[in-house]
Computed example of a mutant assay.
Amino acid sequence: MSSAEGAPSAGLGAERRTADAARAADDYLKSIYSHTEWQTEPITPSQLAGTLGVAPSTVTEMVKKLAARDLVVHEPYRAVRLTAAGARHALQVLRRHRLIETWLVREMGYGWEEVHDEAEVLEHAISDRLLDAIDERLGHPHVDPHGDAIPDADGAIRQAATRPLLECESGYTGEVIRVSDRDPELLRALRDVGIGPGTRLRVDLIGPPAVAVTCDGKPYLITREAAGVVWLSA
């Protein structure tokens, strides 16, 4: 094959590498933002490596690239923080992810424990036009199926005041605002006892092995792991 004949395939390879790099950058920025969405401590490179399932050396290389684009601020051996430009980009990625999750649950019959991984793939694949159509179809929702806020098209986000269930005192009553979507097994366990965004919950006792709660007048024992992914209204 001549060099001219080989040129198109080489071009396609370069395009694929560019697309892969853009997806990786999106995933990093989204993970950095999400880490501080419900608590204040910024993410460290080792935590970022664990979240993304990559080697620390890979994180170091990518963070340097993002810093060169003025998307993150990072000093060696310190936490990684988003710049204003990085936060804007991260919010746009989160908007895509959470709208897709909401669409999959409302329109496609997915369970709330099934949508995270699907959205991870689709958020990089659909066009802005299709995303806007999904948003319109859903009536411009403000939260996804897990209670996480969906940024609007301008990047504005409405964050409700919350308290982690494990930090509530016995007798505290509130509405479930948000449930972390990181562990499908915990989502299934909470679904099975009817706990999710909008549920009214009373904290009866937080013990070492389990947490006693009352939901819709019925007492339940849930594991500390399950309680640890639930946030109540403040």
Rank of each mutant, 00 (worst) to 15 (best):
E15M: 15
R16G: 06
R16E: 09
A19Q: 07
D20F: 11
D20W: 12
A21G: 11
R23Q: 07
R23L: 03
A24L: 15
A24M: 14
A25G: 12
D26Q: 11
D27C: 08
Y28S: 03
L29D: 01
K30S: 11
S31F: 05
I32N: 03
H35F: 15
T36N: 03
Q39F: 09
E41D: 13
E41S: 13
P42S: 08
P42H: 08
L48Y: 03
A49M: 03
L52Y: 08
G53D: 05
G53V: 10
T58H: 13
E61Q: 10
M62N: 01
K65E: 00
L66W: 00
L66H: 02
A68K: 06
A68F: 03
D70N: 11
H74K: 02
H74W: 14
H74T: 07
P76G: 08
R78C: 09
A79M: 03
V80S: 05
V80E: 01
T83Y: 00
T83C: 00
A85E: 09
A85V: 02
A87N: 06
A87T: 15
A87G: 09
R88Q: 11
H89G: 04
A90V: 02
A90L: 04
L91V: 10
Q92L: 11
L94Y: 01
R96P: 02
R96F: 07
R96S: 07
H97D: 14
R98K: 15
W103H: 13
V105D: 02
E107A: 10
Y110L: 13
Y110D: 02
W112R: 12
E113Y: 14
E113N: 11
E114G: 10
H116D: 11
H116W: 07
E118M: 14
A119R: 04
A119V: 05
V121Y: 10
L122H: 05
L122K: 11
H124K: 15
A125Q: 15
I126T: 05
I126M: 09
I126K: 04
S127L: 06
S127I: 10
S127G: 09
D128S: 13
D128Q: 12
L130W: 10
D132C: 10
A133W: 01
D135E: 14
R137L: 13
G139Q: 04
G139F: 07
H140M: 09
H142Y: 09
V143K: 08
V143I: 08
D144I: 06
H146M: 10
G147A: 06
D148V: 14
D152E: 04
G155K: 00
G155S: 05
G155P: 01
